[in-house]
């Protein structure tokens, strides 16, 4: 298989910056607003999320190409992909608890949350829809993970500052965070048109 490194690089950059899942496709918002209160949790979540993202995208790709297409089961892709993600997250949770308890205490909390993240199911669905090959799917998953992490860390660093700001009472908490996200999204539109795939 010949690998087109330029295309892979473009995929990573475009999925991390230009088509950033949080700011241009609005996925994964529940977690985005949930864990972006503190820098520490934001970093933990980004690392865990990127790892789970890449592995579950790889698993879904293999299952899709070698089981679902030959058996013509592609119409079941929603059920099967969510099953794969849920099963992988559950097993990663169990394995991590046994193998490395210290890491589990740091990152385990985030694992359980990941199943309810829309991005984790959107990436395999998109990979299947766009007919990416294995390396392209990996690049797309990695880019999406990095993009989510980036968004989370930017947001967390601003929200930490916001703690001491004097925000009007009805806007405290979530509403002001939404407005913040709107402003960051406005900044991210500056990236659009950088690469056209």
């Amino acid at each position: 298989m010949n690998i087109d490194f330029v295309k892979l690089f473009q995929l990573i950059v475009s999925s991390a910056l230009i088509n950033n899942f949080v700011f241009t496709m609005f996925l994964g918002l529940c977690i985005f607003f949930g864990v972006s209160k503190k820098m520490e949790t934001a970093v933990g979540m980004s690392i865990t999320f990127t790892m789970v993202m890449v592995v579950s995208a790889a698993l879904s790709w293999v299952v899709y190409q070698f089981i679902m297409i030959p058996l013509q089961l592609t119409f079941l892709k929603i059920i099967i992909f969510i099953g794969i993600v849920a099963a992988f997250v559950q097993s990663a949770d169990t394995i991590m608890k046994k193998v490395s308890p210290t890491m589990y205490y740091k990152l385990g909390v985030y694992l359980a949350l990941i199943t309810t993240n829309c991005i984790i199911i959107a990436v395999p669905l998109k990979n299947a829809g766009e007919h990416y090959n294995f390396f392209e799917s990996m690049a797309f998953a990695l880019g999406s993970g990095i993009g989510f992490g980036l968004a989370l860390i930017i947001m967390a660093s601003i929200r930490e500052k916001l703690e001491v700001a004097d925000v009007p009472r009805p806007f405290r908490g979530l509403p002001i965070s939404f407005i913040l996200a709107g402003l960051i999204a406005l900044a991210f539109t500056g990236f659009s048109g950088l690469i056209t795939l």
Binding site: F26, P170, P175, F178, I179, A181, A185, L186
Partner: peptide, 22 residues
Amino acid sequence: ILPAGGFLAVGLLMGFFNWIDM
């Protein structure tokens, strides 16, 4: 209708409903 506007609209509406509630 741009992505940014979505966040702004939800934020402002949420704030507005909070204000009514309070």
